[in-house]
Design a binder for these strands. Sequence first.
DNA 1: TTTTGAAATGTTATAATGTAACATTGTCAG
DNA 2: CTGACAATGTTACATTATAACATTTCAAAA
Lengths: 162, 162
Amino acid sequence: MSAASQPTFSCKMHDHQCCITAALENAEQLCLQQSKRFTNIRRRVLELVWQQHKPIGAYEVLELLQRDKRTAPPTVYRALDFLQQMGLVHRIASLNAYVGCAHPGEPHDGQFLICESCHSLAELDIPEISNAINRSAADSGFTTRRQTVEIMGLCPDCRHPG
Amino acid sequence: MSAASQPTFSCKMHDHQCCITAALENAEQLCLQQSKRFTNIRRRVLELVWQQHKPIGAYEVLELLQRDKRTAPPTVYRALDFLQQMGLVHRIASLNAYVGCAHPGEPHDGQFLICESCHSLAELDIPEISNAINRSAADSGFTTRRQTVEIMGLCPDCRHPG
DNA sequence: TTTTGAAATGTTATAATGTAACATTGTCAG
DNA sequence: CTGACAATGTTACATTATAACATTTCAAAA
Ligand SMILES: [Zn+2]
Ligand SMILES: [Zn+2]
Ligand SMILES: [Zn+2]
Ligand SMILES: [Zn+2]
């Protein structure tokens, strides 16, 4: 099974090509189900986003696309916006970067562990957190539509080096 | 007492000049205690950030400063960085904007309720949330250094209009 | 099959946000 | 005073993101 089902850091040794393939097939199915077009550009951008277990910037994606064909920023941003709306990638606000969603399928916000040392990222989806947030917001009379939870620190590997 | 002690939305009718004055005096004390210089620029930027109960962009601050005196971006960013380090303002990553800290004194991350309709913002500081986050991170072997929690939705006023 | 209209992409230019690097000025302890 | 460091000034540039309009692609309707 691909890393898409791993709850936390998946940067240990694994066949990452498997992650990518699984993510792409998954995406294809999702788009089919929802009658959305999984075009070449969108597929390629998703592939590039998945090529590392780290967030990637839009202009990094752009640069990689350029190797095949002249491309301009709007193309990348459009694809990323589409993938976000489909719940296939997340934007990490504190990094201005994008990462493949570990649990695509239904829309969700997720929580992100971001290692300040190796820059790896892991997606969590802990109801306890989102519920605590929703509850506190509701206590203030606030209606939550979306939540951003980004946690900066040290991943297990960087915490215990060597 | 100023709105600085209010736990949630303080955009209702109140003497906001009072908020500003209190925030400035508070800041002055803090800087004094920590032997940091609360210079004119820093004071002025903090004042401008406090002039609304909404996040303000760095370039908006810049524009307001320009009315007095020619100023360049680094000046504003330096002041904002200083104020952040002193725990006097927070940067809202999802908005690229800054807001006065409602509970200055000791460093903390805070949680932010952001109204997508009127763009007002309220700062929370709910241990239940930050603890849930720290606990989940620890369960993944992750050491938390800093957390970003930004909650987008509708404030009480915009939820029940009229 | 052809038409045709909406969605997707291409293209150009520019807006918005943030920083590097070095010069100058201000502050204060010795 | 003076030396040293912190703060600010100044110029230039890097990075991130979008507006506006042209062109292409694709699939459904005629
Ligand atoms: Zn996800
Ligand atoms: Zn790490
Ligand atoms: Zn605060
Ligand atoms: Zn509102």
